[in-house]
Design a protein around this nucleic acid. Structure first.
Lengths: 69, 69
DNA sequence: CTTTAACTAACACTATAATGTGATTTTTTA
DNA sequence: TAAAAAATCACATTATAGTGTTAGTTAAAG
């Protein structure tokens, strides 16, 4: 997955769970500012920030060998 | 996957490809210092740094719904 | 062995991610 | 449609990730 797409996935998942940005930001203990930028691919988040958000969303990171396209 | 395990996976993959830390650091345009800490889970890397390393290793990130254990 | 390279590590400096604040725009809902 | 909430955005400040340097330790190669 392209790293810049992660934000889109997070936004999608957040919506699916019926959470607002303030909701998720609160639950993940992250500022709305950071979350907002992350969802739009406008920042370069740390793994820790990403991890806290993914936990709330019930998602986890997996590494895979890159697929040939 | 536990985020702190990513470093171990990266180290494993690097070894598999027969690369040294200086090799990988050079190819990914990252300092050995950062790579060294990352492999040991002693830092909190940005997605950009992680991405550059994963690219060289032929790996990519995928998000999955968390598995019940 | 001994020499060289890789790995580990501490530390100061620089770059930048995260935050807090406040404002504007868009969307929702009552 | 009016009011409230959510989303978007800019900007200054704070926290911290990444780097460069240097050095000690371990591993590998000759």
């Amino acid at each position: 997955m392209l790293v810049k797409d992660i934000g889109g996935q997070i936004k999608e998942r957040r919506k699916l769970l019926g959470l607002t940005q303030p909701d998720l930001a609160e639950l993940a203990d992250v500022s709305v500012n950071t979350l907002y930028k992350l969802e739009r691919g406008q920042n370069n988040p740390t793994l820790d920030i990403l991890d806290r958000i993914l936990k709330v969303l019930g998602l986890e990171i997996h590494l895979q060998i890159r697929q040939l396209k």
